[in-house]
Design a protein around this nucleic acid. Structure first.
Length: 423
RNA sequence: GGAGACGUCGCAUAGUCAGGUCUAGUGCGCCACCCUGCUAAGGUGGUAACGGGGCAACCCGUUCGAGGGUUCAAAUCCCUCCGUCUCCGCCA
């Protein structure tokens, strides 16, 4: 949720942000209007309520005839209070409804849509398989040869976009995620294994029930949502709390299964495990002071790049355009690894600066020096996912279908240097 | 799954049976000041969040797990839900 005060004081900033995202700037005026009406009805309710409370005391002290007269008057007053209260509640609900539809204010992201990202840099060089004298196999072919990935049985058991990781495939995922977890712990993150089912208010607070609501699995019987990332649980972790950030940002590394319906992506990335309904992820999550958020964002990006360095992948970093940001994000950097068989870049990490947007909805605050409270900023970033296996297999494959293990992962695979195809 | 107890302003607790004097008492902790040549002890005052109004001091409202209801009036009575604990059952 955006800051209501910002909306009142600088509506143009919010309008401009809406335009940059390709969202409706008129929502700003709808919110301002609803806010004005809410405040008016609230003031009426409050003065009536104050009167009612004052008369309540008189009633308590009065006797006999006088009491009867007072009761007659307070009855009418009670009705009025009830009516005004309802009005004020409705106005507040209306304001809330509009506010929830306004996305976070963009900060520094390029204007435009999905294709208007800015490439910040390239790291590493894609291999030239033609020069090496063989044609690159795609990750599924490699994975099947290694007996590491089994999508046929995934489909048999659970349907399309499900898979089994078997043998070295299972070990490779564990190695990758353990390496990510270890790096996070070394950097001072608190490792956390999170719930993957969350309550509606938690899911709503993180902003995933906006335009991406279709992406989220919902268990109707229990009214619980399956998370698409541990970011959801980690954002909710300190909900309605006053956190102490005096010693610096509070950093958590979440490990969880992630569930995504992939609604609307029918036909895209249908082969292999690029786009699946369930995967695992290690996610960095940081609570920090609003003025430190941009700097923290750069740190998260640097940690992502450090991890990509450990698995020795060529990648580029992009600054996502405003129209392609999630509703909670003010800015987002993605790291995309080169995918040889598709001659394109594939998103492996994504780090978002949500400024105070998530924390405001979730009620995460800090104590300031003057004793008051204020909303903190939240940020998140990927440190490893199942999808990384795709890029690792393709980029480190050898002519015979074996795959070289990047040095950063060897300690997690008992020193294994090469993954060999199973005859 | 069954039975019971409980959920109060950082922590602990009073208040709930008999609705109004609760603008929620007390202890601990914390903060400021006083006293004390240091420390300990003592004294005084202050110690929630959110929202509305005001330049401000301040005033008003909301919140006693959450949401409904009864009533002129709810921490207190009724209903629903959530959570914690104890016992029983069942199952890893």
């Amino acid at each position: 949720m955006i800051d209501l005060r910002l909306l009142r004081d600088n509506p143009d900033v919010v309008r401009a942000s809406q335009v940059a995202r390709g969202d409706d700037p008129a929502l700003v005026d709808a919110a301002l209007d609803a806010d004005a009406r809410r405040r008016a009805s609230l003031a009426e309710f409050e003065s009536l309520r104050a009167e009612q409370k004052a008369m309540g005391k008189q009633v308590a002290q009065a006797q006999g005839e006088e009491k009867q007269q007072l009761l007659a008057r307070t009855k009418q007053l009670a009705e009025d209070v009830k009516a005004r209260s309802k009005e004020a509640d409705e106005a507040a609900a209306e304001l809330d409804g509009v506010l929830y539809r306004i996305a976070n204010v963009v900060e520094g992201a390029p204007a435009g849509g999905e294709d208007d990202y800015v490439v910040l840099k390239h790291v590493g060089t894609p291999r030239d398989f033609a020069a090496e004298g063989f044609e690159a196999r795609d990750h599924l072919e490699l994975g099947e040869g290694l007996r590491a990935i089994d999508t046929a049985r995934g489909a048999k058991v659970s349907g399309a976009r499900f898979y089994f990781l078997t043998g070295i495939g299972a070990r490779l995922e564990l190695a990758l995620l353990n390496a990510a977890m270890d790096q996070a712990v070394e950097a001072g993150f608190t490792p956390v294994i999170t719930p993957t089912l969350v309550k509606p208010e938690t899911m709503r607070g993180t902003g995933f029930l906006g335009q991406h609501a279709d992406e989220v699995y919902h268990l109707e019987k229990d009214d619980l949502y399956l998370v698409g990332t541990s970011e959801v649980a980690l954002a909710g972790y300190h909900a309605d709390e006053i956190v102490d950030l005096s010693a610096g940002p509070a950093r958590y590394a979440g490990w969880s299964a992630c569930y995504r319906r992939e609604a609307g992506s029918a036909g895209r990335d249908t082969r292999g495990i690029i786009r699946v309904h369930q995967f695992h992820k290690v996610e960095m999550f940081s609570y920090c002071r609003p003025e430190d958020a941009a700097e923290e964002h750069q740190r998260l990006l640097a940690w992502e790049e450090a991890m990509l360095g450990k698995v020795e992948l060529p990648y580029r970093v992009i600054d996502t355009a405003a129209g392609d940001l999630g509703s909670s994000a003010a800015r987002k950097f993605d790291c995309e690894a080169w995918l040889p068989t598709q001659q394109r870049y594939l998103e492996l990490t994504s780090t978002s600066n949500c400024t105070t947007f998530q924390a405001r909805r979730l009620g995460v605050r800090e104590r300031t020096e003057d004793g008051s409270t204020r909303t903190v900023a939240t940020l998140n970033g990927t440190l490893g996912t199942t999808r990384w296996i795709v890029a690792i297999l393709e980029n480190h494959q050898q002519a015979d279908g074996s795959v070289r293990v990047p040095e950063g992962l060897r300690p997690y695979l008992g020193g294994l240097e090469v993954l060999e195809p199973v005859a």
